[in-house]
């Protein structure tokens, strides 16, 4: 078999493969016919074989590049990520996400502490001494925040929000989910960005809350915030946990290489962040439509408490009945150890 005969013999297959590829590349997987798939994969394998033959016999760089391109395209066409459906997304949210969060609960608790401790401290300070609060936040902002929850306005809160509910919902999605995602992404700088974001938000929210308590609007404020707070605050803490996880992957790779560690922790982190994003969208809907409703405070407290219980049950028991999938790092370890033992057995 010399080069010319080889080319003459294989040329038809290459052209067939190429036309087949261009036809199938941009088509949805479900529209591929079985016949095409069989042909494509058969041709792909033979083109791979041709490439390795040309490589080993060094039949010229042009031919090699031509085949290399064919293989690269075929590879991208055949090896796809498994198609994701709504079903997988729902399964992830209902089971995978809470499972993962439980597996990574240490990060959740650290993030919780980073958020709650400054929150409580600045709240207590602001509640005792509003002058201190004004040092944290601008006076005018503070007063506006106070006014929002003062008695008079609160009576009309439904009227005031009625036309703006959708606007506010949009605003909450834009603002809060943005904060959560940023909180996650900045974790890549060894977790520093995440820690700062958590502390900053904790202090700010604490100051506002303390000031409002100091002004005596606590009842209005808490009845408003309790319902969406369930999803919102938890989600912020979870996105903080995701950011910390990312930073941890950088700081402490453990038994993995730093590269591998980043990859393993990164996937878990982004899963947590996606879950947090989802929770924040729910929170935005509650905050936009339910929280400002003119209902008796007692009703809001009851609903709010139920929502907190719901979040708790969701995160603590979600996906318990199915076998625990574990974290990416666990599956990695398992794979590694089985490969290792197989090697040893040999």
């Amino acid at each position: 078999m010399n080069r010319e005969r080889f080319i003459r013999q294989r040329r038809n297959d290459w052209q067939q493969f190429e036309t087949l590829l261009t036809g199938m590349k941009n088509r949805r997987l479900s529209r591929w016919s079985g016949h095409d798939i069989t042909r494509l994969s058969g041709l792909y394998r033979s083109v791979c074989y041709d490439l390795s033959l040309v490589q080993s016999r060094e039949w010229g760089a042009r031919l090699e590049q031509y085949l290399n391109d064919l293989v690269a395209q075929g590879h991208n066409c055949l090896y796809r990520s498994p198609p994701r459906s709504l079903d997988t997304a729902l399964k992830f949210l209902s089971q995978g996400f809470p499972q993962l969060l439980r597996a990574r609960r240490h990060f959740f608790f650290v993030s919780l502490a980073l958020f709650v401790v400054p929150f409580v401290i600045s709240m207590v300070i602001a509640a005792i001494d509003p002058v201190m609060a004004e040092r944290i936040i601008d006076r005018t902002h503070m007063e506006q925040a106070g006014e929002n929850y003062s008695g008079d306005l609160y009576q009309n809160i439904d009227a005031k929000f009625a036309e703006e509910r959708s606007f506010m919902t949009g605003f909450y999605v834009w603002n809060n989910v943005g904060i959560a995602f940023r909180c996650f992404a900045l974790g890549v700088f060894f977790g520093v960005g995440t820690v700062i974001t958590l502390l900053f938000n904790g202090i700010m929210l604490g100051a506002v809350t303390g000031y409002i308590i100091n002004q005596g609007f606590a009842d209005n404020f808490f009845s408003f915030a309790i319902s969406h707070g369930s999803f919102e605050l938890t989600a912020i803490v979870i996105s903080g946990a995701a950011g910390l996880l990312l930073g941890w992957g950088m700081i402490h790779p453990g038994e993995l290489s730093r590269r591998e560690s980043l990859r393993v922790h990164g996937i878990d982190a982004i899963k947590l962040a996606s879950g947090a994003g989802f929770m924040l969208v729910i929170a935005a809907l509650i905050e936009g439509y339910f929280s400002p409703m003119a209902l008796p405070h007692s009703v809001k407290y009851v609903v709010g408490t139920m929502l907190w219980a719901l979040v708790f049950v969701y995160l603590v028991h979600g996906g318990r009945e199915t076998t625990d999938a574990g974290t990416t790092i666990d599956s990695h370890r398992r794979r590694f150890s089985t490969a290792h033992s197989a090697e040893n057995a040999e």
Binding site: N76, S81, F181, A185, F189, I267, A273, S274
Partner: peptide, 18 residues
């Protein structure tokens, strides 16, 4: 060389912030 999945696509785009 394999194609990216949803989480990779999502994650790498979130990290555009950083």
């Amino acid at each position: 060389g394999t194609p990216i999945g949803w989480f990779e696509a999502f994650g790498r785009n979130l990290l555009l912030v950083a």
